[in-house]
């Protein structure tokens, strides 16, 4: 019989994997990976601050993340050229803040370790309810704004010229990243949140050219990494979040290696084993 803690861990992993996998496709396509990393570390600083002042650490992480997400969104909208540098600076600032705050905590190691690497095997029923609620909100917003998010990701100028409120959708997307990085802290910890947000989507993008299929494959890679990660870590007595992060990262490296040996299949709109299209003689289409 499967012990209850393992069932809860698997449910939590499934919830976080699906949510990060879907949102990750937008994060990777919009080059928001460094913003995701900055938000993950802000969540850490927020959680420790919450712990210090007697607030729920996850609520502290959420509040701090929401504040930073609005700041990042405004910066990237007002000055796109400098936004990458400023996001990098915020990343450093939030990490420095977290490191400084953690030294003020009496139970220094335990607290820091919990937020840094998460504790998926220790999730409670209330944690699952919190994870589930945030995930439902995130996925529903993505479904509602699916077309608009895709449009602004592909062509921000065109979307603005055609009357879309680009600023609103951009702020909404960054806010979702803030929400998801907060919930990920419970399962994989702040350090590995970026991996779960980026690796499955980046892997999926390598083997398909369809946006919908990228989302589908990203979910599969994310679920496999999480569930195999839990199983392997228990079998080998290793840190669960570390193994999940390794699985997700390895999926990207392995795909990158093999993708050169794949060719694009028009029927299934995926890269499948076969001679690479680059090796084939050039075929010019009659319409152009």
């Amino acid at each position: 019989m499967i012990p209850p803690f393992l069932i809860r861990a698997m449910i939590a992993s499934v919830i976080t994997s699906i949510t990060t996998a879907i949102l990750g496709v937008y994060v990777v396509s919009r080059n928001l990976s460094s913003a995701g990393a900055a938000l993950a570390h802000t969540a850490l600083a927020g959680a420790i601050l919450g712990h210090l002042i007697g607030m729920d650490p996850y609520l502290g992480a959420l509040l701090m993340n929401l504040a930073l997400s609005i700041m990042i969104a405004n910066l990237s909208l007002s000055n796109a050229r400098e936004s990458e540098a400023v996001i990098g600076l915020l990343f450093g600032f939030s990490t420095a803040l977290a490191v400084t705050l953690v030294s003020l905590v009496k139970e220094y190691t335990v607290v820091a370790w919990t937020y840094l690497i998460g504790d998926v095997l220790g999730v409670t029923l209330s944690d699952i309810l919190f994870l589930g609620s945030v995930s439902i909100i995130t996925i529903n917003v993505i479904i509602l704004c699916y077309k608009e998010f895709k449009f602004i990701t592909f062509d921000t100028d065109g979307a603005r010229a055609m009357g879309l409120n680009v600023s609103l959708y951009h702020i909404l997307m960054i806010t979702l990243v803030a929400l998801v990085t907060t919930i990920c802290m419970r399962t994989v910890g702040s350090i590995l949140t970026t991996v779960l947000l980026v690796a499955p989507a980046a892997t999926a993008r390598k083997i398909t050219h369809s946006f919908e299929r990228t989302i589908g494959l990203s979910i599969i890679v994310s679920l496999l990494s999480s569930l195999l990660g839990i199983y392997t870590s228990i079998q080998l007595n290793l840190t669960t979040s570390g193994v999940i992060g390794l699985m997700a990262s390895l999926s990207y490296f392995i795909t990158s290696y093999f993708v050169a040996k794949l060719k694009y299949c028009k029927k299934c709109r995926l890269l499948v084993p076969g001679k690479s299209s680059q090796d084939l003689p050039l075929k010019v289409k009659d319409t152009d």
Binding site: K147, F151, F154, D155, M162
Partner: peptide
């Protein structure tokens, strides 16, 4: 009221997207 065709250089070609997705974007507004 305006159909806008931007410069191709401003597009994000890293996003996995099909031709139908691009044309349907015109219907989003």
């Amino acid at each position: 009221m305006i159909g806008y065709v931007p410069q191709r250089a401003s597009l994000n070609l890293e996003i996995p997207i099909l031709v139908k997705d691009v044309v349907l974007m015109g219907r989003v507004p």
